[in-house]
Design a protein around this nucleic acid. Sequence first.
DNA 1: CTCCATTTGTTGAAAATTCAACAGAAATTC
DNA 2: GAATTTCTGTTGAATTTTCAACAAATGGAG
Lengths: 219, 219
Amino acid sequence: MKKYLEILKKCPLFDRIEEDRLLTVLDCLAAKVISFDKKYTIMAEGNAAKYIGIMLSGSAQIVQIDYYGNRSILSGIGPTEMFAEAFACAEVGAVPVSVIANEPCDVMLINCDRILHTCRNNCGFHQQLIFNLMKDLATKTILFHQKIEITSKRTTRDKLMAYLMFQAKKAGSHRFSIPFDRQELADYLEVDRSGLSAEIGKLRREGVLESHKKNFDLL
Amino acid sequence: MKKYLEILKKCPLFDRIEEDRLLTVLDCLAAKVISFDKKYTIMAEGNAAKYIGIMLSGSAQIVQIDYYGNRSILSGIGPTEMFAEAFACAEVGAVPVSVIANEPCDVMLINCDRILHTCRNNCGFHQQLIFNLMKDLATKTILFHQKIEITSKRTTRDKLMAYLMFQAKKAGSHRFSIPFDRQELADYLEVDRSGLSAEIGKLRREGVLESHKKNFDLL
DNA sequence: CTCCATTTGTTGAAAATTCAACAGAAATTC
DNA sequence: GAATTTCTGTTGAATTTTCAACAAATGGAG
């Protein structure tokens, strides 16, 4: 567990938990670590929603696959980030999404009950964890607002531009790279991949942007 | 303030706060009540995100208006429900949405700082309020998941059917009524109103559903 | 380096959405 | 209760997306 301390220190769940107490906390929470290979399913839609996930290394995506096989990417998850926390906290029965590994990754799983309901040792840090969870959930809600703001646009072009603007703002520069390949970006924007490629080509010819793979430059 | 106690008891923020302490709590939080007429703006996009809102009577909608004037409805708000809590809790500068009154309504506003940061009187209920906020934010996150699941469908028909299925499930019956008129439903589903009307007509002729205004019956 | 699998860009046809305009129904106002 | 405003459904044309198929470019494995 020790080797993950550097990552865990940066996880929003453990904000303001002193490093020298972190191991004790993890013990009290009965945290466990599981490794997954690329493309493996970390959580499957329909699974019991008991666990909060923390990505320790590697990356994954939160996806929904509908009826016809259309994939919708809700978000990407990188090291220090949490996932499935809303389903665990809201105590809904099952997760309505799947979490799929992008690459080999290590994941920490914590049974949410251990956080929400004070343990018999009365460890005293539960209040801080609950506060941190609240902050995290508020942040996630805002990310969803952004995704909805982007995907509520009616054309591929407008969705793409809205997404790129957000990314530029986040990067603090007109040059930035995105965490998605073309198919993934299409699944995040909820549009057709080939139409997306065509639109990027058109924007390039119009001199609105330059792009090479995952790198973009808004002119 | 007293006349709102019955409503406030049912607000998730005050879950497990005893009724006879509620007035004290409201006082400590410096809660205030403001009334709005139909169509009035309760919060405007860009306003400081300091306050958590609680709808006491009447109803409102959370909307985003883009560049071209397209309205996107994020959700509807009825009595006992909270709004803007994510922006206040995440301590982002400004609210990225507007809240518009559907009808005359009374709204309680609470400065979020008063909840998050324990007051000097050390009232002791802040922990419960933070826990309640966490629960509420988790629930809101799930509602956004549902909206994304619905709007990520590619056709008006699929969006509409996904929405109606959720409503039927929520109502626990194949007969139910929805909280939106046609234009509002279109703005929630992020589709064209006339196309939506056409699709409802088609589904009716196909015998998939019956509908009269806001009332639906899935056959 | 070569082969193979994956990713990206392009195209044209089919399908669906959006847009604008209008008419009838319903609700509200005075 | 008459007049006016709002809401709903319908239509056809223009725009846009989706779908399928393919070729070029890229990247990795052996």
